[in-house]
Amino acid sequence: MPNILTRLSEWTNARRKLVWLMLFVLVVAVVAIVLTPVFLIMPFKAQTPRIMEVSYLMRRWSPLLTIIASLLILTLTIGLWMAGRWWSRIVLAILLLPVLGAAWLARQNHFEWMFNPLPNAAYAKAAEVTFVNNDDRVMAVRIGGESVAYPIRLMGYHHLVGDTVGGVPIVATY
């Protein structure tokens, strides 16, 4: 450790500038890989197969890439922190915020914030139902003698409901 610190204090200005540049590029890249698919696959926008593929790849790899990039950024930050004055330390601290935010967002499913899943679906007997009107529409399934109705007003809110009907695992979608 002591000899690393000495080495850091010996950084030249040119070297320091290069490290700052790397840091900025990494921060922008981390934020971009997480936010790009959010914007590309927004509701009410047109998507092409290419857009979907790029979004998939970014969503697929961003959890891992944001961790690797965060470690690199942290290393660079420590170096600049040691060698830096108070004002550059403030800039370094501010730069860490979007990085941590991106690493967190890469692990979230913001579509489940917008469209509300129903993980523990419950059911009532047809004869005892009070929450559906006669003219409400339902999606009706019958498998192996078992019948289930999924009211469309509920499906229009939750969109996906997993179930097992007549022994067959299914997903009801709307």
């Binding site: 509300n116 129903l118 679906a121 419950a122 059911y123 009532a124 007997k125 047809a126 004869a127 139902v129 929450f131 559906v132 009107n133 006669n134 003219d135 409400d136 529409r137 339902v138 999606m139 009706a140 399934v141 019958r142 498998i143 078992e146 019948s147 289930v148 109705a149 999924y150 009211p151 469309i152 509920l154 499906m155 809110y157 939750h158 409901v161 009907v165 067959v168 299914i170 009801a172």
Partner: peptide
Amino acid sequence: VFHDELSFAIWKREQPQGRVLKPDERI
């Protein structure tokens, strides 16, 4: 999975023994 879209009244007439997805009480 084959399914129909029906009014609740018609479904209930045809499948009186069926079960119906319940709303999430919180929502």
